[in-house]
């Protein structure tokens, strides 16, 4: 009798130690996965990026813990609870456990509330970093900005078409590439001339749909010099995937130099990937399914260099 009790206590002890060990390993792996998750994302090139990446790492950690926990149990039963061939006998007839049900309702509930509050806070931070609202023509263009010393508060117009990008600078010239000064809050007006487009720069972790019929005010702060891709992220028709260009983030001085140089340049045809492909298609006898013809490239002072290597 006594030895029996001892055995039960021993078994309990072993299972408590085992479960604690499993939870410890799970926590360790989740922590590792969370720190590893930063490497799955492009370089951080805007003031928004670190916030997004931290949140992603946080959720990767929680997600890994839950995933490994659940699949660990599934793996365990697959190894230890398999029926021998032709054995159709019953398992332990456990119908349920109300306490356990309450635990696994309340814990996930608290968890998602925590994630939601954390994300709501980041939302308001991001809103302060770069606001977004429908453009009101009545409003004065020059706004007081909340962050950084500004070269110019006047917005750069981002004009999206099927299928090219045009950036019209307040200094009165236009470009097929988006040049931005580092560590300055830049204001944009996002304009679509035809269908929905998406203004998406993965290295900035920012994306905003451009909606024909309304002008959207947008702002962001680049924080890292380099060349990054700007991609159309909302499906916009046949040559959607070609509708991308480069964003060049540079120091204040070289940005100023670029402006002075470009203002004086004679306008030429802008970047026109879709047009080149459409011309090839026509040469081959216009085969394929119906498409609207691409818009002719806008006349720009800076056609840019699409082939320039980019990071992220």
């Amino acid at each position: 009798m006594k030895s029996n009790l001892k055995r039960i206590i021993n078994q309990k002890l072993i299972s408590i130690v085992g479960v604690s060990l499993a939870i410890f390993i799970d926590l360790l792996l989740s922590k590792l996965m969370a720190s590893w998750s930063y490497s799955w994302l492009p370089v951080q090139a805007s003031s928004a990026a670190p916030y997004v990446d931290n949140l992603f790492a946080f959720e990767t950690g929680i997600g890994t813990f839950i995933f490994l926990g659940c699949s660990g149990v599934i793996g365990w039963v697959l190894i230890f609870n398999r029926a021998p061939k032709y054995d159709e006998s019953f398992g332990e007839p456990i119908e349920g456990n109300t306490n356990l049900e309450i635990v696994w309702t309340v814990i996930p509930l608290l968890l998602v509330i925590a994630i939601a509050i954390y994300s709501t806070n980041i939302n308001s931070t991001l809103k302060n970093l770069g606001s977004k609202s429908k453009y009101d023509p009545q409003k004065d263009l020059i706004q007081n900005s909340e962050l950084g010393q500004n070269i110019s508060d006047a917005p750069i117009d981002v004009i999206a078409r099927q299928w090219n990008w045009e950036f019209v600078y307040p200094e009165g010239f236009s470009s097929s590439e988006l040049h931005l000064p580092i560590n300055n809050k830049i204001n944009f007006r996002l304009i679509s001339k035809d269908v929905l487009h998406g203004f998406y720069i993965p290295a900035f972790r920012l994306k905003q749909d451009i909606i024909p019929g309304s002008i959207i005010e947008y702002s962001l702060t680049p924080t890292r010099a380099g060349v990054y891709r700007l991609r159309d992220s909302m499906f916009s028709g046949t040559y959607f995937s070609e509708n991308q260009t480069n964003v060049i983030v540079e120091s204040k001085d070289s940005y100023q130099n670029w402006i002075h140089k470009t203002v004086k340049k004679v306008p030429v045809n802008g970047l026109n990937q879709a047009g080149i492909l459409y011309k090839k298609r026509l040469e081959k006898g216009d085969r394929g399914w119906a498409t609207v013809p691409p818009n002719p490239p806008p006349m720009v002072n800076e056609p840019g260099d699409y082939q320039q290597p980019h990071e992220g």
Binding site: C70, V73, V77, N81, A83, D87, E88, G91, E92
Partner: peptide, 10 residues
């Protein structure tokens, strides 16, 4: 998962 636990899996 709790249904699988302690079962006799086929």
């Amino acid at each position: 998962i709790a249904t699988l636990w302690g079962g006799n899996l086929r």
